[in-house]
Amino acid sequence: MDVFEQIDDAAIEEERQALNYINPDQRKDRVVKGRPDNFNTWDDREFWRRFRLKKQTVELLLSLIQDKIEHNTERNQCVPPMHQLLLALRFYATGTFYVTIGDFGGLHNSTICKIVKRVTKAIATLRPNFVNLPENREEIIAIQERFHNIARFPRVIAAIDCTHIKIMSPGGDTAENYRNRKGFFSLNVQAMCTANLQFVDIVARWPGSSHDSLIFNNSAAKYRCDRGDFGNGIVLGDSGYFLNNYLLTPLSNPRTQVEQLYNESHIRSRNVIERCFGVWKRRFPVLSIGLRCKIPLAQDVIVAAAILHNLACSQSEGEPPSDPEVLIPQQPEFPPVYADNEGINSTSSTRDGIINYFESLITQ
């Protein structure tokens, strides 16, 4: 080895030391971070603000999914079920990166990824218990009475609409199917709700370019409506849906006082789904900020958030306190895209009967 080679080796060694070079064959020392007790650390209000659910609701939720997320042994510093649940709720409440959630909970970001998947899937399995259309006559009548108390619109069992949940580009040949008419990638999520702002149906599998009426036409809810499972119950939708005898849309050109009264009552009654979306997205800001995960997990998160929203409503929780650190982007609103001319101008014997009902109210 000549003197020049010795000088080169010495320079390389100095550079390695300066850059704190680590031998790739040398294993990194294992570090077990401290895990905070977030359930007991925060008072009730601060807990509610950070995790979007109250403590008693979280305890109830844990009792329902604990057997699905609990580890079989205590080996290898396993994460307790309560800690897993709170970290998943924190993800729903912020929509931030896994590494940030990991710093909050004292875990590596790869562990956070696994926890979010495990907890989300466990919550999604509760869907039959918390998100379902009315099953019997008593439930149908109770829902119809609550809708009637809003604007005297009769026989309504649900209001229906779609909302876009922002996602990352999924890549591949079909990525552009997820770009909606507002210009960003999304899932077009269909939901139906009652007058007390609880979801009774949710569909979260369609790309953002899908039309609202297409989603409904391929849904289980339409199949049940066609089968007559809800008796004389009707659903209220905007002008983007096809008019028929169980899904009523507003009149495009109301001419008489009766038709104007019908439209006013229809709009006020259907407005519950818009309010429901607003409360839902403010409760879980990840739905407004956007989901930076693969589509199957994004779909599970959307369904899980709907279940948690219904659970919070059943526990009489109000809307959580706002978090000033979470900035929810305001997305521009566009008028609905009409299904086609038939969806607007066609007639329906049910809608004619409802208009006659409003005429009787005027003449009384």
Rank of each mutant, 00 (worst) to 15 (best):
I141L: 07
L19G: 03
K55P: 12
T73Y: 11
T194L: 06
T73F: 10
R275A: 09
Y246I: 04
F230W: 12
I328H: 01
H83K: 14
G233M: 01
A306Y: 04
S269L: 08
H309P: 15
I328T: 05
N180F: 04
K114T: 12
S186H: 02
C313F: 05
I273N: 09
Q26S: 13
N341P: 00
E342L: 07
F216G: 02
V235H: 01
I101L: 13
P335R: 04
L243Y: 01
A195R: 07
F216L: 14
V272K: 07
R90S: 12
H108N: 11
I215F: 09
Q56I: 11
R16S: 00
K281W: 08
D173G: 03
V156K: 02
F230E: 01
A122Q: 07
L308T: 10
I141F: 00
N136E: 01
S346E: 00
Q66Y: 10
P335Y: 01
Q315G: 00
H71E: 13
G34I: 06
S269D: 08
H164E: 15
L87K: 09
K114Y: 11
A204N: 13
N188Q: 02
W280K: 05
V131G: 05
V31M: 12
I123Q: 05
D201Q: 04
C193I: 02
D212F: 08
K28R: 13
S252M: 07
R75T: 12
C193K: 03
R205D: 08
N217S: 08
T41A: 12
R155C: 09
W42Q: 09
V279I: 15
I202T: 12
E74V: 10
C162T: 13
P296K: 05
R118N: 14
I165H: 04
N245S: 06
T125M: 12
A93T: 12
K121Q: 11
V337M: 12
G105P: 07
G171F: 05
P250H: 06
R155Q: 10
N129P: 05
W206V: 04
N188T: 04
E59H: 06
F147M: 02
L197E: 13
